[in-house]
Amino acid sequence: MKLKAALTSVALAGSIAAVSTPAMARDTISIVGSSTVYPFATVVAERFGTKTDFATPKLESTGSGGGLKLFCQGIGTQHPDITNASRRMKPSEYDMCQGNGVTDITEFRIGSDGIVIASSNNAENLDISLEQLFLALAKEVPNPDNENELIANPYDKWSDIDSSLPNVAIQVMGPPPTSGTRDAFVELAMQGGCEDLPAVADMSEDDMEGVCHSMREDGPFIEAGENDNLIVQKLMSDSGMYGIFGYSFLEENADRLQAARLNGMVPTVENIAADQYPVARSLFFYVKKAHVGVVPGISEYVEEFASQAAMGRNGYLKSVGLIVPPRDALMDLQDKAASMPNLQKSELL
């Protein structure tokens, strides 16, 4: 008897779960995209949720490319309304959007993020040029005896590259290839240090990319997974180790870590905002205009993001490590939030 009752109740619950119809209209803003923008966008979303009567937006960290792919899949509430990106939309992605009916998009540039090479306070700090960094971490480097020939990376210690660098073994922990931070590091730091080498100067663009973008795989560069906290912990326990991660992790651990000088530049808020620090990138988000007014709160969310309270000199985004834009750029951003101009393909080329 008991068994029968139990079975009936389970079956009943099953039918209820299966029958109730999906709620097609959505009243929560759906945001996807870059894991670099995620820590900033989540803070804005939460503030927006407590400040207004709208539901708190839902954020998925899918990576910049994954986010744009979801975003460009079409119009309709099963597709996201906003996507974050730690790089600009590519023309091909713009075409994909257009092809799926996502024609009206507004782009917002929301400040920058620097990538730092940091070590424990007890370690010898690096003061290194991008070229030296390339020599330390690339798979193939020019032969020291013949600068036009490429050989497998022979350097074991920093001081093998230049006597001014520390006399310790090269050990650098960095993000895996799936990470946007890795993409940006490879594009800005590695390529920056490699382009002007005589050995690659005459190569075709593809070959050059092959050489410049390959990290060494013989041990000194250690792929540490997506969790930057683990890199920080490892740096604390081993002072011969250096780590690559986003500026916000440096700021969070400011009293325990020190950042390397790259091309003579220290990663400070001022240097990154002024584009002086060589390994910095702009952050973006894209809004699907067809959803404004359909999903409630989108324009208000954008306003909150562009507000003085969020991105001003003392804004709350600054305290979580975003390099906020200068005053003029912020004014432009606020104008954009009000007018929401369409992104043109010509802007991306």
Binding site: S20, E46, T56, L59, E60
Partner: peptide, 17 residues
């Protein structure tokens, strides 16, 4: 399927994020 997300509001039903 998008359940790895930042969701502040406590869900009220089977169709809430």
């Amino acid at each position: 399927i998008g359940m790895v997300a930042f969701i502040v509001d406590v869900p009220n039903g089977f169709f809430d994020s």
